[in-house]
Design a protein around this nucleic acid. Sequence first.
DNA 1: GGGTGGACAGACAACGTTTTCTGAAATGGG
DNA 2: CCCATTTCAGAAAACGTTGTCTGTCCACCC
Lengths: 359, 359
Amino acid sequence: MTPAGGAPATLRDVAERAGVSMATVSRVLADNYPVAQRTRQRVLRAIKDLDYVANTHARALRGRGTPTVAFVLNDVRGASFASVAHGVEEEAARRGRICLICTTQGDPERELSVVRTMREQGAGAVILIGGVVDDAAYRSQMTAIAHSLDASGSRLVLCGRPPLGEGVPATVVEYDNEGGAYAVVSRLLVQGHRRILFLGAAANGSTTAAGRLAGYRRALADHGVPADDSLVTAAEFSRVDAYDKLSARLRAGRDFTAVCAVTDTVAAGALAALGDHGLRVPEDVSLTGYDDVDPATDLRPQLTTVHVPYEEVGRTAVRLALGLREGEVSAAAQHAVLGTHMVIRDSTAPLARPAPSAG
Amino acid sequence: MTPAGGAPATLRDVAERAGVSMATVSRVLADNYPVAQRTRQRVLRAIKDLDYVANTHARALRGRGTPTVAFVLNDVRGASFASVAHGVEEEAARRGRICLICTTQGDPERELSVVRTMREQGAGAVILIGGVVDDAAYRSQMTAIAHSLDASGSRLVLCGRPPLGEGVPATVVEYDNEGGAYAVVSRLLVQGHRRILFLGAAANGSTTAAGRLAGYRRALADHGVPADDSLVTAAEFSRVDAYDKLSARLRAGRDFTAVCAVTDTVAAGALAALGDHGLRVPEDVSLTGYDDVDPATDLRPQLTTVHVPYEEVGRTAVRLALGLREGEVSAAAQHAVLGTHMVIRDSTAPLARPAPSAG
DNA sequence: GGGTGGACAGACAACGTTTTCTGAAATGGG
DNA sequence: CCCATTTCAGAAAACGTTGTCTGTCCACCC
């Protein structure tokens, strides 16, 4: 109500105005101790008059822990990350927490420093999302972080990344990369395709790309189609790079009848490249995506893809991590693998003619 | 290094291990006071050994203010919001701040409570983004919030909303809604269109929709085309609702030759609806969007739209608010209006035939 | 050699809460 | 009517920092 004159009101100000001690005010706020009706009213009145808001930091300092969930991702603009963020935000809000959010632009070093900041902040959970280069350095650093967060009463959550190993205090929420790719490539094979380009193998070896590539390879093997590494094309997970890489490839001649893109965004780039080279989808080339993100709804033809429950990933991450601290989720349940499923739309079709040869 | 056994190490622990006082450790960290080389080394060593991380809350409590920027939006999944968020995050990171993020799902009441939480957190700036119903209740509540944040050493920033009035301590970053709509509708008029449907007038009267609608109306007036309110169609800012509303309209008969959609997302829904009714864009119907967001890149035909510098909006918001506190931006410069410009692509074409009549 | 000042380090009081621990009324039972 | 018990309220000690206020020691100059 009253626009405070100078500094914000403190507990002491409220206490003085209500003519009680600070302890009493605190107890009215916490509501965990008997306070006489009359006194309570006076205190509430004073709180309103002074527009008092409790200082979170003082509270956190005394009471250990903060009402915060930290969320670290590559880029807020990514379509799938937005869904995860939404899930995280939703579940966090449901539990009266707010979200800290930081982006790393894919730089592992930046990720480390950001997590450090999050730890300083004393967030209740620190959620890391997105594939990563799974090397020894990463594992050892992440393991150290997991222990250090654990000691601070916080919890590390890895989304879309492999577990760090037994005894490491971290929650893991995975989704099936290998199975979805297997399903979608199998379908292409059943439709008669033999030369299937995999677009989006990450140069740096991100686990997401690796999992999907593994599904692609297993499907080929199971159908007795010899693997041809010249069909595995590297590209970043971006529309532009996908467009560029596939365009370059097409200029050199088309030696495939289908494209399995590593994400829907990559598929969007691929679709544009194919179109610009006069190729129709699915008549000339079949195309599949991965992620089933919202913006892909407007691609024409509509994309055959793999649905990944990203919102659920976000919700689960928060639920497991916070639930553990609050005793409602067991320590044994701290590793979830969410299922994915193929969504058949219009971008795939049976092979019409025998596969053309290169050149 | 050493995975801490129990509670996280404090300044006192470090001081003890290094055999110095807490003050000395603090000074090594702050680096604003002479400390002997030898002592400094010992302290740094102890910090590393104990994996010490300073407690942000204690720091904030003592030093007033936190390294945080709060960001309140409707939905993280919105395409334009993602860009603003990116701009905010980028500029905040550049200044060593981290982002708190909260969503409100468009509920003004929720927005109020969220801002309250942000204030408790002691964020350096609280950034509100997105159109709003500009009524008396909103203005008075927001004005109170502005004062209360100001008193706490924080700063309210309104993005894409009108200023609250003289003397209210708030930063405003607007972008031109009226002008962009004027430009794009003028172009349609020049191309011969007379029956132009405005799709996405907000039922609740959001300022964004209102501004764009005003531009639409002014363009019509300036070209001597009588306004026909039956051409102004309400729809939420979502793909699905746009699709539904336009489909319903088309089922009742087409009495327009062009559609001016209030956002690119709405345009995407419109495009789908038109396509499903056998109408080609731009041959049968011209279509324009607004926002020029990334995902719209994949619409076919490519959208004629209005570019809004959303990332710049986010960056400016942070720069102005934080710059004011740090004395690098003047109080007079706390109101920015960013320009928008038309981007002509393939979804608009000159009117081929005389406009059909309704029914 | 005494005085002056610079370079360093420690003690201690905040910051705004929460939570004991204590104490004073009020209440009730014998 | 007195003692035991309950019900409420206050004093004060934390929580982990930072900055101010004092010192101490040493070097240097006259």
